[in-house]
């Protein structure tokens, strides 16, 4: 098996991986999980382990009887369709986008097509279109800049796509995901070397402590 060239140091929690495998997460959370897994062999293996257990539960389950004509209908249906050909993919295929893994690319196209909105101090965001239970946004943080000090009411997941940042919890680089709960009050600062781009998902609005008046938050949907 070919391995991805990244070995992130900060991973998803087991709870998130299990919920992704069973399909109970909001779309925005599914998106950040799928994007991290695209960059992380060990979380990929964990997802596959949970799916294997799902298969074992399915195999073991009692089932519900199908209608009398079910098999006839199924045979009639497949006779009208031809199985798809095996995809041939060569290792020499052009590399996927170096910054944006495929699941995220399906939402934004390329980084050059993102419509950013300024949050001030050079920090920008772009909210992705997902179902409303949780919000996914791209964050652009210029090298050396701090994201405004904030707390969360709920879960916040941040995945680094380019560059790196540090906060009270550690140093996060390409592929790393930070899982911050409501108790965290943090101020991520981008490394000096490169502008930092992150995918961030929250299941409740962020609360900025000083930077942005609270009244304006609904306007920026943050």
């Amino acid at each position: 098996m070919t391995h991805s060239p990244y070995n992130p140091k900060h991973h998803l929690t087991d709870d998130l991986i299990a919920a992704y495998a069973t399909g109970t997460l909001a779309e925005a959370v599914n998106l950040i999980v799928a994007t991290h897994v695209s960059l992380c062999d060990s979380c990929r293996a964990a997802v596959e382990a949970h799916e294997t257990l799902g298969g074992a539960v399915l195999e073991d389950s009692a089932g519900a009887a199908m209608g009398d004509d079910a098999l006839d209908r199924a045979m009639a249906a497949i006779r009208g369709t031809v199985p798809e050909a095996r995809p041939i993919r060569l290792s020499a295929d052009p590399a996927p986008d170096p910054v944006v893994p495929a699941p995220l690319a399906a939402y934004i196209g390329g980084l050059d097509r993102v419509r950013w909105r300024s949050l001030g101090m050079g920090v920008k965001q772009s909210i992705l279109r997902t179902t409303p239970e949780a919000t996914a946004r791209l964050l652009y943080i210029p090298a050396g800049t701090a994201v405004p000090d904030h707390t969360h009411n709920g879960l916040e997941l941040t995945l680094v796509l380019q560059g790196a940042y540090s906060d009270e919890d550690g140093h996060f680089a390409r592929g790393d995901v930070e899982v911050a709960d409501p108790s965290v009050n943090h101020m991520p600062v981008a490394d000096m070397s490169q502008d930092c781009i992150c995918l961030a998902v929250t299941d409740s609005p962020l609360r900025f402590n000083s930077f942005l008046p609270r009244l304006l938050q609904p306007l920026f949907r943050i």
Binding site: T2, G23, A34, T35, S38, L90, P101, A102, A106
Partner: peptide
């Protein structure tokens, strides 16, 4: 399929690992 019916939302899947023939 269940996510499709129950939640009416897309299901982002991880990027496939590149593999040779």
């Amino acid at each position: 399929r269940r996510i499709d019916i129950a939640r009416r939302q897309r299901r982002p899947e991880p990027q496939d690992l590149p593999w040779g023939p």
